[in-house]
Write a protein that binds this DNA or RNA. Structure first.
Length: 279
DNA sequence: ATTAATGTTCAGAA
DNA sequence: TTTCTGAACATTAA
């Protein structure tokens, strides 16, 4: 679920765990399928216990815990994963606990995941390819330049909305923010990449930064199902600033004339304003 | 009671 | 090489 702003919010939420030493790794008992099955878990414990967390970073939708060894822990929340220091929504979906010591009263880092599609793995710092994952994700959306964004996508034959979701092109944009970015940029989601002019790429890049920074300032979007939250009883608030996402049938707040439309692209919902976003 | 939908990623096929 | 399809899983709404 979480896209760049939500993952960045979770990263900031666990920053006080930097400097702590990992003293144990446990999987709470749960009837649900568990993360890190036995041989993997044993190896994970062997390489992680006793190590200090030096830096807590992020790349796209992944959180990176750099250890004082040659390893880093990569957490991928995927659809419904959450990372907390305390108070997960419930115990049933708690998938992994990193016990901490020597860390200014921070006792643990919790990985909670309702659907269980999330991934936690260990990657040697020198193994850059493994850090990027099998898909070899591209540069972070907050870092990529307008020029590089255009160069990476301009020859593609796909629709721009679909291409923005491709983590190989740039890392961090997901289904929600792709629609919001294109609406602000005034670009129709079905417009093919290779048909976009330079000024459209400029607007997409500029609005991408506006949307992502604004969403981070609001601690991300908590949708209907309420899965994403910054603490057990605290939601993000960027959902109140969405202009198109899940607003189909409602009037466009920008032009005030047209109704927001929902279409399906690559088996995912896309929302746009037919008046503000012309083909 | 089924079926579709949900913020993601990836292997395998076209 | 690039792009598309279905599956991994849990839960809720239609």
């Amino acid at each position: 679920m979480p896209e760049l702003p939500e993952v960045e919010t979770m990263r900031r939420g666990i920053l006080s765990a930097s400097g702590a030493v990992i003293s144990g790794v446990t999987r709470p008992p749960s009837p649900l399928r568990s993360i890190l099955i036995e041989p993997e878990l044993r190896n994970f414990r062997r390489r992680v216990i006793g190590r200090r967390i030096v830096t807590i970073g992020r790349l796209g939708k992944r959180i990176l815990l750099e250890l004082d060894s040659t390893d880093r822990i990569v957490i991928e929340p995927r659809m419904t994963g959450l990372v907390f220091l305390t108070d997960p929504p419930d115990r049933k979906h708690l998938r992994l606990v990193l016990e901490l010591s020597d860390g200014n009263a921070v006792e643990q880092i919790l990985f909670w995941d309702q659907r269980g599609l999330g991934v936690v793995r260990l990657v040697p710092s020198e193994d850059f390819d493994a850090l990027l994952g099998p898909a070899k994700i591209g540069p972070d959306a907050l870092v990529v330049s307008a020029e590089e964004l255009r160069l990476r996508l301009q020859s593609s034959r796909r629709a721009i909305k679909v291409a923005l979701l491709d983590q190989k092109a740039l890392a961090g944009i997901g289904n929600l923010y792709a629609s919001e970015i294109l609406h602000r940029a005034g670009v129709h989601p079905e417009k093919l990449c290779h048909r976009l002019r330079k000024d459209a790429w400029q607007r997409i890049h500029a609005e991408m930064l506006v949307v992502l920074h604004d969403a981070i300032a609001h601690q991300g979007s908590t949708l209907r199902d309420g899965t994403y939250r910054i603490a057990r009883d605290a939601a993000g608030s960027y959902q109140f600033h969405h202009r198109v996402y899940q607003r189909h049938g409602k009037p466009c707040t920008t032009c005030g004339r047209a109704e927001i439309v929902r279409i399906v692209q690559a088996q995912r919902s896309t929302f746009y304003c037919p008046k503000c976003q012309k083909k």
